[in-house]
């Protein structure tokens, strides 16, 4: 944060918990790569040195939902797959965010057919929709930055991590 230059001797600064917690949260968003079809290739490209998602603190792609805060749904979600996506989403701890990457996840895309869910917002709360078929990697970085801005506006007390009574019922 450019603080080091100011810290010539022992010193302190004042801030709010909300500011420091949301700063920490947004600078280390750990994605859950839900790569289902072709969009996943562009999602992989985001991790390579050319686009380098590490610049934004999100290089730790976690292949277990229990360690992630951001689900990148990249690909065509069929009705059969939708239950799996939802199950994985439910396993992610709060707070969590969702990027609908590409035309397919956002709206069904070119698959106007019986088997493809016409937009994952029918069963998931989507934070950022990402246009393109597939979106370019820099577009995904743009979505990540928007998620970071959104996280920056949150308050720590927005997420109490209370168990969801709906889930406990099942």
């Amino acid at each position: 944060m450019g603080l080091e230059a100011k810290l010539q001797q022992d010193s302190f600064f004042t801030t709010t918990f909300d500011a420091i917690i949301s700063w920490a949260r947004k600078s280390s968003v750990w994605p859950m790569p839900m790569g289902i079809s072709c969009c996943a290739i562009e999602m992989m490209a985001v991790g390579d040195p050319k686009y380098d998602i590490a610049r934004f603190g999100s290089e730790v792609m976690r292949f277990t939902p229990r360690q992630s805060d951001l689900m990148i749904v990249a690909g065509t979600v069929t009705y059969k797959m939708s239950h799996v996506v939802k199950k994985i989403y439910d396993q992610m701890p709060e707070p969590k965010w969702v990027i609908a990457m590409g035309a397919c996840t956002s709206s069904g895309g070119m698959y106007r057919s019986y088997s493809v869910v016409q937009g994952i917002d029918q069963f998931l709360p989507v934070d950022v929709y990402l246009a393109g078929c597939p979106p370019r990697p820099d577009n995904l970085l743009n979505a990540l930055i928007q998620i970071q801005e959104k996280i920056g506006r949150t308050k720590a007390r927005d997420f109490q991590n209370l168990p969801n009574p709906e889930l406990l019922k099942n």
Partner: peptide, 27 residues
């Protein structure tokens, strides 16, 4: 899915499917 009742490539099946025949997860 095994509980699905139709056969999608039959000509009488509508391209966009039959609403409600494939359940989505609860939101």
């Amino acid at each position: 899915p095994e509980e699905f009742e139709y056969h999608p490539l039959r000509k009488e099946f509508p391209v966009m499917g039959i609403p409600g025949s494939l359940p989505l997860p609860k939101k």
